[in-house]
């Protein structure tokens, strides 16, 4: 779709640099489809309808992630999930969910421009985040398949270990993205030497 060309990332004013010395690598994965999905997990109709569209059951264990083909589904709360799709599939998934759910008590809301993904990889990925995040990021405690919404600096983030163990995926709000990236770039200085 040609209109994709007009998109601008929330961190358009940030220049990401190549890591020096022990600095972790910070990269944005821009322009994904983000759907905020709400419904009652104890309603089998809701769970079935969603499964039909996404191809997997919604994660009902708190703070876990389920991957289904191109889709990733994050637990946000006991009746709330974040569905991440490739950009071009967001509309399709959204309308399929809405029509599959019909009158079932639920909500499917596009938030694709509301958040973005920042991947932090490398030896000091956890140390960079831990500069101002109260979550225990240790690999024995926080493992691939888990996710957590938490405080990051003076904002917040959804944090999940990357499946390959190379670092972390952060999902951050658009309006705070510029601040958080400035914070991260400043934090990188510690690992410069």
């Amino acid at each position: 779709m040609s209109d994709l060309f007009h998109q601008q990332s929330p961190i358009v004013q940030i220049k990401l640099t190549e890591p020096k010395a022990n600095q972790p690598l910070i990269r944005e994965i821009p322009f994904q489809g983000f759907l905020n999905l709400r419904g009652r997990p104890n309603n089998p109709d809701f769970m079935t309808a969603v499964k039909k569209v996404l191809g997997c059951s919604l994660p009902i264990e708190a703070n876990t992630v389920v991957v289904s083909g191109d889709y990733k589904i994050y637990w946000l709360g006991p009746d709330e999930w974040l569905v991440i799709t490739p950009t071009e599939q967001q509309r399709k998934v959204q309308s399929e969910l809405i029509s599959a759910l019909g009158v079932i008590f639920s909500s499917v809301v596009d938030n694709s421009s509301g958040v973005t993904i920042i991947n932090i990889t490398g030896d000091n990925a956890a140390n960079l985040i831990a500069r101002d995040c109260p979550l225990d990021l240790h690999s024995t405690v926080f493992k691939a398949g888990q996710c957590a919404q938490t405080r990051l600096a003076k904002s917040g983030a959804m944090i999940a270990p990357l499946l390959d163990g190379s670092g972390f995926e952060l999902i951050i709000r658009r309006s705070f993205a510029d601040y958080l990236l400035l914070w991260m770039q400043d934090a990188l200085i510690e690992f410069e030497a």
């Binding site: 708190a62 703070n63 709360g77 006991p78 109260p134 979550l135 957590a148 919404q149 938490t150 405080r151």
Partner: peptide, 11 residues
Amino acid sequence: PWCGERDESEF
């Protein structure tokens, strides 16, 4: 009750 023990600054 859902997320387990977390730091006060999250609440």
